[in-house]
């Protein structure tokens, strides 16, 4: 693990201090790459837009995934089929499906504006409008809930039946069952999903690369560093962006861990 993960990570940290070009490590550049970041307005925009995406997509994604997991956890006939259906968009992403999205997002004859028209709302520019492009990308992310839904489902399935039996004896309502059994028992999983969704949203790449290539206010850090490294061949600069991205993600994850003590319940520590 140290070899396959640690070495490349340390290497990219070291590279961030070099004027690293295509074939040669180039000159030692000290903190020059970092000072350049300070005056790079495209970097600053990407930083802000990454935070914007995270603030929008994480709550949406976690809530929709949890709701979907609860829905497909119901004991009704055929529910396994629906689990698969909800999971499908997570494995059918990519270029092939992008055409469908382009069609739905088209301002003049797209499906979404047609729908808005039905309910009397004037159409918007979606991914083609600087103000709506990022919300559109966030909306798209609500389709890729499959992985989080599966994790929540596994968590729900892991809650022992007897705990529900215990509160049922006390005549608990549906809400009370959820509030006093499901939520606390699921809290380690909710915590996990929240942390990884934040981490992943800081690394959002594919949807934006395919749909807007970072234009119209959708440039995010992972995409920006990819362009810098693989298109402009400025690997030192790209690595510096990565280090910043790493520090920010790390700080936020640390905060989440610190705050988790207040609401996450661990059975192993003997809660009952």
């Amino acid at each position: 693990m140290v070899l396959f993960w640690g070495v490349p990570i340390i290497a990219s940290f070291v590279i961030s201090f070099f004027d690293w070009k295509l074939l040669s490590p180039g000159e030692f550049a000290g903190v020059e790459n970092y000072t350049k970041l300070g005056t790079d307005r495209r970097f600053k925009a990407a930083l802000w837009q990454t935070i914007y995406y995270t603030l929008g997509s994480v709550p949406l994604n976690v809530l929709v995934a949890l709701a979907a997991a609860i829905l497909v956890n119901q004991k009704v006939r055929g529910v396994t089929l629906f689990r698969t259906l909800f999971y499908l968009p997570s494995v059918t992403a990519g270029v092939a499906i992008s055409i469908l999205w382009y069609w739905m997002f088209n301002p003049d004859f797209g499906l979404f504006n047609w729908f808005l028209g039905l309910i009397g709302v004037p159409g918007i520019g979606w991914i083609w409008d600087r103000n709506w492009a990022m919300p559109s990308i966030i909306l798209m992310s609500a389709w890729s809930i499959g992985a989080n839904m599966v994790i929540f489902l596994a968590g729900l399935q892991g809650i022992p039946e007897h705990l529900y039996d215990a509160v049922d004896v006390d005549g608990a309502t549906r809400y009370q069952r959820f509030r006093h059994v499901t939520l606390p028992m699921l809290s380690p999983v909710i915590f996990f999903v929240s942390v990884i969704t934040v981490v992943q949203s800081f690394q959002i790449f594919t949807n934006i690369y395919v749909m807007t290539r970072g234009e119209r206010g959708t440039m995010v850090l992972a995409l920006y560093l990819f362009f810098k490294g693989f298109e402009d061949l400025k690997m030192g600069y790209a690595s510096a962006i990565a280090v910043i991205l790493f520090v920010i993600t790390g700080v936020i994850a640390l905060l989440q861990f610190r705050l988790s003590g207040a609401w996450v319940y661990y059975e192993e520590e003997g809660g009952q």
């Binding site: 055409i99 069609w103 088209n106 003049d108 004859f109 797209g110 520019g125 991914i127």
Partner: peptide
């Protein structure tokens, strides 16, 4: 066709 139209045509 503007870029939005072009992409939507597929």
């Amino acid at each position: 066709p503007n870029p939005a139209d072009e992409e939507a045509l597929g």
